[in-house]
């Protein structure tokens, strides 16, 4: 590198300078190759391999660490007891079992980005707009996919049989309390696609969650929890949905002819790509059904591109099913 100072200043930049000065032409130059390749060395439709670790946090009921390239996310699930007598507006009879979890707010996801994970989010600041909207998207997908069974989260009490009860009479069963699951998601390093990583972490953490055995003690009029780990039981989860995010890079500009514009769909975008791509697509699959499509920002993804996105998303789903089996 010593002779760079002596040689005549050329008209070319080093790679990093090119990327910093004009990010969009830099990405375009990569994708224009006969074999399109992204600056990270991945193919446009190549997803990053997730690495999932569960049960790393000892003080939470369930936890997971997910690493997706340079994005790492920690998720901890903590169960707290909500007494039925303390619910200000108890759900009335006609609320279906399925809606109970959402109605009572028994799942509380929170995404924290202000951890120093990226220069874009200053540590210690209040939750930014993107952190809030991530929390919301995770919560809404949790409810939309009806992942948890409400009876897993209810603590009920069956009154003992009294002497004046007939032999056929069933004793009364009342719901005394609910488990509220606080799902805290901390992003410890952010290199794009926080949503997919966070969602994988939530899924793995919920799978790992074990709630202690809890029962209503009629004499003390309170809920007691068993200290024995053997009594704890896991949650029964429906088939776990998986999400796949795509970014769409386009050279379209209002200053150019529309026909000149080219676009590429990039699977699992990193931070550099996310910054220059205006359009994004997220597909959430549960088995062979789509539970959510979020697509906004531009007109580039039509039917054909969506077909390709969903095909790739179902590949990711199968991959996660395999990973899920081993955790």
């Amino acid at each position: 590198m010593a002779d760079t100072a002596t040689s005549a200043p050329g008209l070319s930049f080093p790679r990093a300078t090119f990327a910093k000065l004009t990010p969009a032409p830099f990405l375009q130059a990569h994708l224009k190759q006969p074999q399109p390749i992204r600056p990270s060395g991945r193919k446009p439709d190549e997803l990053r391999e997730p690495v999932i670790n569960t049960g790393s946090l000892s003080h939470s009921n369930g936890s997971a660490v997910v690493r997706l390239g340079d994005t790492s996310v920690v998720c901890g699930v903590r169960g707290e007891i909500l007494l039925a007598s303390e619910v200000p507006h108890p759900p009335n009879e006609d609320v279906s079992e399925e809606d109970l979890v959402e109605n009572l707010g028994l799942l509380v996801p929170n995404v924290e980005l202000s951890t120093g994970c990226s220069p874009a989010y200053l540590p210690g600041n209040p939750p930014s707009n993107s952190a809030q909207s991530l929390s919301w998207r995770i919560g809404s997908l949790l409810h939309a996919s009806s992942l948890l069974r409400p009876d897993d989260l209810t603590i009920s009490y069956t009154e003992p049989k009294s002497a004046d009860m007939g032999p056929d009479e069933e004793p009364n069963t009342t719901v005394k309390a609910y488990w509220t699951l606080y799902i805290d998601i901390l992003c410890i390093s952010l290199d794009g696609n926080c949503f997919d990583a966070a969602w994988m972490a939530v899924m793995a953490a919920l799978k790992d969650t074990k709630l202690p055995k809890a029962w209503w003690d009629a004499d003390r009029e309170s809920i007691l929890c068993s200290p024995h780990a053997n009594d704890a039981r896991g949650l029964t989860l429906n088939s776990l949905p998986s999400t796949t995010t795509f970014a769409v890079f386009s050279t379209a500009s209002p200053l150019k002819q529309r026909s000149e514009a080219e676009s590429w769909v990039l699977a699992d975008p990193d931070a550099f790509e996310e910054e220059i791509c205006l359009e994004s697509v997220t597909v959430a699959l549960q088995g062979d059904k789509i539970v959510r499509i979020e697509k906004h920002g531009g007109p580039r993804v039509g039917k054909e591109a969506m077909d390709a996105c969903v095909a790739l998303a179902s590949k990711r789903w199968e991959q996660l099913q395999k990973l899920g089996g081993s955790v």
């Binding site: 939309a144 549960q286 059904k289 789509i290 959510r292 499509i293 906004h296």
Partner: peptide, 25 residues
């Protein structure tokens, strides 16, 4: 949809497959 027919936003929730989605769009 924008003029020209470009799909600018699609927020879908529920349970559906790609065929239904195509018809909807």
């Amino acid at each position: 949809c924008a003029a020209g027919g470009g799909l600018v936003m699609d927020e879908s929730t529920g349970r559906f497959d790609l065929g239904v989605w195509g018809e909807v769009v």
